[in-house]
């Protein structure tokens, strides 16, 4: 699924790197605990989170993620946006809650990982 399709499904707003929204995403992981995210192994995954601090971007960086989605109307800080721009990551904001956002993406065919 393309990042642009994810944004449409979540009625989201692109915050940065709109030039990269054709990038393909194969899986998704939703969590506010970054250590849980770091236990998740999947190629080309996207992160859904309600957490707002620079470690969200660092965690996505370590996991080679290309897209971070902020749920529940959370907004990344300017510092976070600059970090994401440098790392070629798209940021999306949605007003949807975590459960609803994950459910919509799952219904559209996006899957989680095994966590192994």
């Amino acid at each position: 699924m393309k990042i642009s399709e994810i944004c449409d499904i979540l009625e989201g707003e692109i915050i940065c790197r709109a030039d990269l929204t054709d990038t393909q995403v194969n899986a998704a992981c939703g969590s506010d605990m970054m250590s849980d995210v770091l236990a998740f192994v999947k190629e080309q995954a996207t992160l859904l989170t309600g957490l707002v601090n620079p470690q969200v971007v660092r965690t996505a960086e370590m996991m080679d993620m290309h897209c971070i989605i902020f749920v529940r109307g959370k907004r990344p800080t300017l510092q976070m946006i600059e970090m994401a721009e440098d790392r070629d990551m798209v940021m999306i904001c949605t007003e949807l809650e975590m459960f609803t956002a994950c459910g919509k993406l799952y219904s559209a065919g996006l899957r989680g990982g095994s966590g192994k």
């Binding site: 250590s35 770091l38 236990a39 957490l51």
Partner: peptide, 17 residues
Amino acid sequence: IRTLGFGAGMGLPNIKK
């Protein structure tokens, strides 16, 4: 620390993994 997204008790297990 948990409000910052860490402290879930996954640090050392993740490092080992």
